[in-house]
């Protein structure tokens, strides 16, 4: 199937701003699904609130557009009640890690087989450019007019510490890597996290004088490096990309199937 077979074409052109990284994530995710050849009836996409979460409206799967920060909790209910379905949960950085931070770490801890894609553009776009827990110290936002004093999370380290069994990071510049990592995350049995550094030219870019979409993509190329590269040794400020965690541990729904078996036998 072509990637157009996976979208709801009647809603295009989509609502995102020109040059928004979220469209590139959508693009890469669709290619991942196309390569895997998944049946559309077997995919449930659950999203929360924000620019990123509108992605669910554009794809021709079972789509559940929920409330702010809670997508993983809804997805947990869907997955546990129908473990054979593929659950993909795209979230924004604020959605996943501010209001939804608790659900994020607990879904990771359970190692439930969900694919969490964090579209990290370091800003609240839908509400007009407020700082998020990923904005970082010193950036400018509509709620940080004197510059931001909040330190940011490292999504990879957070996901690793919380128990996610697949953790990867890439950017919207590295589109082949993006598609490839999402592919592996979907296939992975357990809680998988893909952080995609994404650009918001409209708010983050403008507020922080990072130029247009192409300039922001170039910055992503320049500020990142593959895990274990030589460049990292001489330029420690570089952000690493690639797969950070990939391990097999008991998955939650499989474990619960064991509980059912024991309960039915009378322990």
């Amino acid at each position: 199937m072509a990637i157009k077979d996976y979208i709801r074409e009647r809603f295009f052109p989509h609502m995102w701003c020109p040059g928004c990284g979220h469209g590139i994530v959508l693009n890469g995710m669709l290619r991942a699904i196309e390569v895997l050849g998944l049946n559309k009836n077997d995919i449930v996409m659950v999203s929360g609130i924000g620019c990123s979460s509108r992605i669910s409206g554009y794809v021709d799967f079972h789509t559940l557009h929920t409330i702010h920060g809670r997508a993983l909790a809804f997805a947990t209910g869907v997955k546990m009640s129908r473990p054979e379905l593929n659950l993909i949960v795209p979230m924004g950085d604020g959605d996943a890690l501010a209001i939804g931070g608790n659900h994020f770490i607990h879904a990771a801890r359970r190692n439930i087989d969900l694919t969490a894609i964090v579209m990290n553009n370091r800003i609240y776009g839908m509400t007009g450019g407020q700082y998020s827990p990923l904005s970082g110290y010193g950036v400018s936002a509509t709620t940080a007019p004197y510059s931001n004093i909040d330190q940011s999370f490292d999504i990879v380290e957070l996901a690793r510490a919380a128990g996610a069994t697949f953790v990867a990071r890439t950017t919207t510049y590295h589109v082949q890597e993006l598609s490839n990592l999402i592919q592996q995350a979907i296939v992975h049995k357990g809680f998988s996290v893909v952080e995609v550094m994404s650009q918001c030219p409209t708010y983050f870019g403008r507020k922080n004088k990072e130029g247009g979409p192409a300039d922001m993509l170039k910055r992503m190329k320049d500020m990142t490096t593959p895990i274990g590269s030589k460049a990292k040794q001489s330029h420690t400020e570089l952000i690493e990309r690639g797969i950070f965690v990939q391990k097999i541990l008991p998955e939650y729904c499989s474990e619960y199937a064991g509980i059912i078996e024991r309960a039915m036998k009378g322990h």
């Binding site: 052109p13 040059g19 693009n27 890469g28």
Partner: peptide
Amino acid sequence: KLCELRCPDLA
């Protein structure tokens, strides 16, 4: 195909 892959609008 980099243009196709990077296009945020699937255009």
